[in-house]
């Protein structure tokens, strides 16, 4: 499933972020020890609306509101990086969800996520990783995510990914003032949250120039070689050891006096 965000329609009313807090029972207005340069995601804000001021090509100033949350990558780096399967892809909805009981708190997912989405509970004694979980419970019941349901302007649309991509391209084709780009269609193997905009994405804080292959490709390429290399290396060492053993046996000379620390480790 997927969500299409039409940035031209967002009026910055914050209904979505309020809905997210209500649905996920996240606290409001807690003082945080970690200061942030601008309004951004944190352990209580799984989604935020960032206000961006852009100077248009005609010299006019525009204000755009950009909703930020987990993009729910099709091939999520965070889930691939999690060594205890605490972050994982929900098989029914393909949402990227978190199982706190399994998390160790290594924060490798935060290093791995290319969009810097997962946030940590820095002020808790036993902190958890937090991020938007696509309201997975609602999706399973066939509902749209809380934020999408709350959006009064239709800036957020929930549906099948392929259908939404087709729709995005239709919108772009029909309205020349849109940038001809669907953010999330190809980025790092594709994401389930898609964006269209009338202002250049790079000016709105989007990370551009990302590859089309998911980052986990590199990990898989490496990890799939490891067992063979390890086995080959082990056989080689065993062979060496056997060879030395035989050679020592075949030498007629009495064995040399052993020195201390004679190399048996």
């Amino acid at each position: 499933m997927a969500v299409l965000v039409d940035l031209t329609k967002c009026i910055g009313c914050e209904s979505c972020s309020v809905a997210c807090k209500l649905w996920n029972k996240l606290p409001y207005g807690k003082e945080k020890s970690r200061r942030q340069k601008e309004k951004d995601l944190n352990d209580d804000n799984w989604t935020v609306i960032q206000e961006k001021h852009v100077e248009g090509e005609n010299g006019k100033a525009y204000t755009r509101f950009v909703k930020k949350q987990c993009l729910h990558c099709l091939e999520p780096s965070c889930a691939s990086a999690c060594f205890s399967k605490a972050l994982r892809v929900d098989p029914d909805t393909h949402a990227v969800v978190y199982v706190p009981e399994l998390c160790v708190g290594c924060r490798y997912c935060m290093i791995a996520c290319p969009f810097e989405i997962p946030r940590y509970q820095w002020d808790e004694p036993l902190p958890l990783v937090t991020k938007c979980e696509f309201c997975v419970g609602r999706l399973k019941d066939g509902d749209a995510p809380a934020c999408v349901s709350a959006c009064p302007t239709g800036a957020l649309v929930y549906g099948e990914r392929d259908a939404l991509i087709a729709r995005a391209h239709e919108i772009i084709a029909a309205n020349p003032h849109y940038v001809d780009y669907v953010y999330g269609e190809k980025e790092l193997g594709g994401t389930q949250w898609l964006y269209i905009s009338d202002q250049p994405f790079e000016k709105l804080g989007f990370k551009m120039g990302l590859e089309e292959i998911p980052p986990s490709t590199y990990t898989h390429a490496y990890l799939s070689k490891v067992p063979f290399l390890a086995a080959a290396w082990g056989l080689f060492l065993a062979g060496m050891s056997y060879y030395h053993h035989r050679r020592a046996k075949n030498e007629k000379k009495p064995p040399e006096k052993k020195e201390e620390g004679d190399g048996r480790i």
Binding site: A79, S80, A81, C82, F83, S84, K85, A86, E101, L102, C103, V104, G105, C106, Y108, S216, T219, H220, Y222, L223
Partner: peptide, 16 residues
């Protein structure tokens, strides 16, 4: 939870 990866295998992870 330090022992979790011993039972919950995130084998796609290098950290694992």
């Amino acid at each position: 939870h330090f022992w979790r990866p011993f039972v919950s295998w995130g084998y796609t992870s290098v950290l694992f």
